[in-house]
Nucleic acid binder design. Structure first.
Length: 483
DNA sequence: TGAAATGTTGGGGCG
DNA sequence: ACGCCCCAACATTTC
């Protein structure tokens, strides 16, 4: 068989194990041109944000090592994906192009363009892997896509247990030596003007090895109590796999299978394991929604919100982004995000609810901010969860569910570990008053040498007032729809 | 994967 | 002893 090279096109699937395109390429017993193309097409409405770019840089470095370890070489390029892939294909007479599917509208369209441009010259094949199930495969009794999570997840769980993930190819035939590549550093993914990435470096280890390490740590230390402890942001109770999943350093199948294995070995892991699998299914559900409603990141799923009078309050929005709202749990979350590129899920719900319901700022502004600052930024999850919080999404929190940031703080950070870690100026306050310094008696504040308005801001808005205002505005939006 | 308002119950203080 | 009130504590409903 003539060994014309095969191109393995990498995008958000930066791993070598359980990677169908790479495995198929290796099986061809031909030179493998593994290539990542940084495509900064201005038409893409969702180019990677700063935190994602930082992660991408390090993840590519790790992938390059992994590819080399099995005898290959990762080619790095920048430019228009169609043009670059076409040029590589022509220059090296490639016989095939393999890649893993994505589900974002822009990426789906890109896949179509790649197919159209190249399919007459070589074999273009796309593979599944980013999800456990193709979005088109899951539908309800009447053939419609599910709009509610619970029946969706039940349908997923009724399917046969997925097959075990495949190991990495043992060996790749290297690409022709003259395949052009540029230095990773020349992609310009790292911050230039000032180095804001220190907190990211301290917190994360991007790459498949880091993903595997995070998974093992989670399985050993947190899985059994996951269903309870994941709600406490002050403890290490969550998997912290989200950025690794977002960049495909670990596949959802690998995570799923590892949890199932642990459950089989240890009955104490049953409940925690099921809770984690449920989160993986939420991820599937979000992608399923984005697949069937491509406008999800731009438009409220529920029409009643189409003309909601959001407040264009730039000042309040900026206070929120900086973690200076005057509500300790909200500020803790926002500062954790800025520093580490990640935020505990409980805090995500509370901070997002605060922006949308207390400040009445458009959820799309919050979505954008998260998109730029999260290392786990994923279009489907981000859009789906913001709409969920705002109350306009599929299977969303009802409009009258408004988090009280003070009560949430007392309930989920009772000892104040999380709040004090990220808002250290509150450290000296006793637990009792930590979440509401504005309600603390004067003698308590004096004893802590604390003055509201000097050490820490006054609340951006009073909770009782904000709550009534949101209920009023949201219920009106609902009834106007009916008329 | 809420919170607040409202309703109910039961113990204890008190006249 | 009794009724009355207060108010936790808990349950229900309402937003």
């Amino acid at each position: 068989m003539p060994s014309t090279p095969v191109i393995a096109w990498y995008r958000n699937d930066l791993r070598i194990a359980d990677h169908a395109p790479l495995a198929a390429a290796a099986r061809r017993d031909a030179p493998v041109i593994a290539v990542f193309v940084l495509d900064e097409n201005p038409v893409n409405p969702w180019p990677a944000g700063g935190a994602s770019r930082w992660w991408l840089h390090h993840s590519l470095a790790s992938l390059a090592d992994d590819v080399e370890r099995i005898g290959g070489r990762l080619v790095i390029r920048r430019g228009d994906s169609v043009a670059v892939l076409g040029e590589i294909a022509d220059t090296h007479a490639a016989g095939a192009l393999y890649f893993e599917r994505r589900y974002e509208p822009f990426e789906r369209e890109l896949e179509e363009r790649v197919h159209e441009a190249l399919a007459d010259r070589l074999e273009v094949r796309r593979f599944s892997g980013r999800l456990l199930n193709e979005p088109g495969r899951i539908s309800n009794a009447s053939g419609e896509p599910y709009r509610v999570f619970t029946p969706f997840s039940k349908a997923c769980l009724r399917l046969p247990e997925p097959a075990a993930p495949k190991p990495a190819p043992r060996r790749l035939a290297p690409p022709p030596p003259d395949v052009e590549s540029i230095d990773l550093a020349d992609l310009g993914l790292l911050p230039t003007r000032h180095d804001w990435a220190e907190g990211l470096r301290e917190t994360w280890r991007p790459g498949a090895a880091g993903a595997r390490e995070a998974l093992e740590t989670f399985l050993d230390e947190a899985l059994c109590d996951y269903h309870e402890r994941r709600d406490r942001p002050g403890r290490r109770g969550t998997s912290r796999l989200s950025p690794h999943l977002a960049f495909g350093e670990i596949s959802p199948l690998q995570a799923w299978h590892a949890v199932r294995e642990r459950q089989a070995a240890d009955s104490a892991a049953t409940r925690g394991g099921d809770a984690l699998l449920r989160e993986i299914l939420w991820r599937e559900f979000c992608h399923h929604l984005l697949f069937h409603w491509p406008a999800f990141p731009e438009r409220p799923f529920n029409d009643a919100f189409a003309r909601f009078p959001w407040h264009d309050d730039e000042d309040a929005f900026e206070r929120w982004t900086r973690g200076e709202t005057g509500y300790p749990l909200v500020d803790a979350g926002m500062r954790e995000l800025w520093r580490t590129g990640w935020m505990h899920n409980r805090a995500r719900m509370v901070t997002a609810s605060f922006l949308v319901k207390h400040l009445l700022v458009d959820w799309r502004k919050g979505q954008r901010w998260f998109w730029d600052t999260l290392v786990d930024a994923d279009l489907a999850n981000n859009a789906c969860n913001w709409q969920w919080v705002a109350g306009c999404g599929a299977d969303a929190a009802p409009y009258f569910r408004i988090f009280n940031p003070v009560l949430q703080g007392r309930k989920f950070d009772p000892e104040g570990d999380y709040t004090r870690r990220w808002v250290p100026e509150l450290s000296a306050l006793p637990d009792r008053h930590l979440q509401a310094p504005f309600d603390a008696p004067a003698n308590v504040l004096t004893a802590a040498n604390f003055r509201l308005g000097r050490n820490y801001p006054h609340p951006a808005v009073e909770h009782g007032f904000a709550r009534r205002r949101a209920l009023d505005a949201l219920s009106r939006a609902k009834s106007e729809r009916r008329n």
